[in-house]
Design a protein around this nucleic acid. Structure first.
Lengths: 271, 271
DNA sequence: GAGTGGTCTAGACCACTGT
DNA sequence: CAGTGGTCTAGACCACTCC
């Protein structure tokens, strides 16, 4: 019944961390405020510097504070959230039938990232590879079948902060009849993926988004310059054609501290 | 250009962690395999025990391994994922108009958790509170208005693992005309929240899901017995009535290692 | 009981931030 | 330059697991 295995007091690291966390939650410490230094914590808790450090490390792992050499740690300032709404899917499909000048407003950036183009700077890269086990299963093709792989990185235009990376896969057989779809120099494509697929006779009937989250690896942390304790939201988008077959999948990663995914589900009215 | 600030070699903790991570990614170490002991790492890298420990701690924070006293750490075995699909919303609405015996198949558990009732055990708790700043803003009511607050915990029936906690808020004024809606003893309510609201003349026209993720606090980690390095998926569901007003919100937390949220977006066909 | 990881101490050197 | 946190060492005690 007692959650504690024995009747020992909580580790001192935990006490240090909990004390500071309560101060943050109560509002005694506000975002941007600097925390007590390790020296002060040593004295306050009569513990060694490494123990105080352990408490700070806990709070970092929970994403509550940011720390760096030579500067006292500060209470994390939550960055503004980018909202990526599923209503983009329908919007993009509507625009895909417009003539070119009107289509220009929507590009692949919006397809993958649900946000206006002008706020983000993004780079793309195309290549052609074998599907492999995981992708082929999702696209219902053979693992040795070739796919067009398109990789995108998006960062905030002003701050340079990373907003997303995504990788899209399309069976090469579906689109090889239109060679201009295979060339990264045509990015950003006016009208996005839904229009691209329409040029080879494909209509997207529905989109499935599969969402989960995980912690970044060491490489992702330093590549994206992520603060500690920030998870990545993983979203696999599967585009289904009018025959019920998947024709494109897109794996996207979003830093959770600056991303909110929004999904709108209209329901059939009662008669 | 060089991501490294100076030309020092990477910290030894990182080298230790990266070496093991590569072995996991290459498949040399498979889920369930035990890692080298701290003693072995000390010898292999000619470092102190605390340095080896630092590398292990990094991998724990990234969710790659699980460790515990007295046992060598092992490569994390991913738990089976529970898929919670947005198609539940329409299903629940369809069933809400059926007579009682047929409605029994769907309960609040499914409304909040998108999964069959029989797999999970859940407990609920009702009370009436002031909305407060955040909830009142989302429900477009005054902060001092009373709301019915319903808290749910769900855990897997066999393993006892926590699957979700959620808290639902409904303006009391909307439902006080039906007193049986205010009593937790009527849980699980056949037909779920959509039917409950229908008894006071409310029809849900659409549902908005807002999804993000964060790391658990120390309290959540021990309350739910979560492994290290597992984020929580946060999902706020907002139910909108036929007049476009929010009538219920539900804040749910799901451990990311055993949860996948799936959202299906049908698109209007081209003519 | 032997071996393991978790916590803690005391002390060292280094990198970075401020003034 | 002084002060700070980041990394590392050597050694101690304890709780837990497995044999």
């Amino acid at each position: 019944m007692d959650p504690r295995p024995t009747v020992v007091s909580a580790p001192m690291q935990l006490q240090v961390a909990d004390d500071i966390r309560m101060k943050i939650q109560r509002g005694d410490l506000k975002p941007g405020d600097s925390l007590p230094t390790l020296g002060e914590l040593m004295e306050q808790w009569s513990c060694s510097m490494n123990t105080a450090r352990g408490g700070i490390a806990l709070l970092k792992a929970q994403g509550l504070i940011t720390a760096g050499r030579g500067r006292a740690p500060i209470v994390r300032i939550p960055p503004p959230r980018v909202i990526r709404s599923s209503e983009r899917h329908q919007l993009e499909k509507d625009q895909a039938r417009l003539p070119e000048p009107d289509r220009g407003a929507v590009g692949e950036a919006e397809t993958n990232h649900y946000m206006p183009l002008h706020d983000q700077e993004f780079s793309s890269e195309y290549d052609q590879v074998e599907a492999g086990d995981e992708i082929s299963a999702a696209l219902q093709i053979a693992p040795t079948d070739a796919v067009l792989r398109r990789s995108y990185d998006a960062r905030h235009r002003r701050t340079g902060q990373y907003l997303s990376t995504s990788v899209s896969y399309i069976p090469l057989g579906l689109i090889s009849s239109n060679p201009s779809l295979l060339d990264a120099r045509n990015e950003p494509w006016p009208g996005g993926t839904i229009h691209q697929l329409s040029t080879v006779g494909i209509e997207i009937a529905s989109v499935i988004d599969e969402v989960t989250a995980r912690m970044p690896t060491t490489v992702e942390t330093q590549m994206w310059n992520l603060p500690d304790g920030v998870p990545l939201i993983f979203c696999r988008r599967i585009s289904i054609n009018t025959h019920g077959h998947p024709v494109e999948i897109s794996d996207a990663l979003y830093p959770a501290d600056r991303t909110e995914l929004r999904f709108v589900t209209p329901l059939q009215p009662w008669t």
